[in-house]
Amino acid sequence: MRQDFRCDCPFTSALDVLGDKWILVIVKQMLIEGKETFKDFTESEEAIATNILSSKLKFLEEVGLISKTKLPDNKKTNLYLLTEKGLALTPILVELALWSDKNLRDMHPSIMNGEAMEFLRNDKTAFASELVEKYREKLAATMHKSTGG
């Protein structure tokens, strides 16, 4: 698939890929919430419609942010995993969460709070590194299981 870009501006080009309201939500669900299967995504509180979810997962795969494989113990179920390109979005997700915490809490006071947000506020670099490290550990365990190890 060839992605069409509006212009040569790097910011606009990034938004051509990431600007849809569901793309970063799906990446966040994978990175932070551990979602891996279609069923996992459909059960999330964001309530994405299944037809939209299907098209967004396909798009994410086509642009190289996720890969699709089969569950080791169930060859009917697709397993969606972040690629390195997808994991590279972690700092963007962290910055969006910080921005939301600082700028939307007055309008949306029930935004998540607690230890994770405190960690994020105090050390965003360590928070992002921990997210990526935990995801890579989970990915390695998944790949180990799928190869029968």
Rank of each mutant, 00 (worst) to 15 (best):
L98M: 02
H108F: 03
S44N: 10
G64R: 11
D106I: 02
N51C: 05
W99Q: 06
T69E: 13
S44D: 12
L57H: 05
N103W: 11
V63H: 00
K75D: 01
A88N: 11
D106F: 07
M112R: 15
L79T: 00
A47N: 15
L79A: 00
K58C: 09
E45D: 14
K70A: 10
L93P: 15
N51W: 11
N74F: 07
E115F: 04
S100D: 15
S100K: 13
T50V: 14
K75L: 05
S54K: 13
Y80D: 08
K70Y: 08
P72H: 14
F41G: 05
I66L: 11
N51E: 13
A47F: 03
I48S: 00
E61P: 03
L53D: 10
K85W: 04
E62V: 01
L87Y: 05
S110T: 09
S67T: 14
A49N: 15
I48D: 03
S100V: 09
I92Y: 12
E62D: 11
K56Q: 08
R105S: 12
P91N: 08
L89R: 01
H108M: 09
L81R: 06
R105G: 01
L82A: 11
E62N: 08
D73Y: 06
L96M: 12
H108G: 01
F59G: 02
G114C: 12
K68I: 14
G86K: 12
F41L: 07
I92M: 04
L89Q: 14
T77K: 11
G86Y: 04
L93W: 08
L82Y: 04
R105Q: 11
I66F: 03
R105V: 14
L87G: 13
M107H: 09
K68D: 13
P109E: 06
F59T: 04
L71A: 09
L57M: 06
G86M: 03
P91A: 02
K70E: 07
E95G: 02
E43S: 12
D106G: 02
G86H: 07
K70W: 06
D73F: 02
E62H: 03
M107Y: 10
G114Q: 10
N103V: 02
L81M: 04
I111C: 00
Y80F: 13
D106V: 11
M112I: 07
G114M: 08
K85A: 15
N113D: 12
I52E: 13
A97I: 02
S100Y: 09
F59S: 01
E115C: 00
E46P: 04
Y80R: 07
E62P: 02
V94H: 02
L71G: 00
T50L: 10
L57A: 07
S44Q: 14
N113G: 12
L57K: 08
T77Y: 03
V94N: 00
M107R: 11
T77D: 12
L53T: 01
V63N: 00
K56M: 06
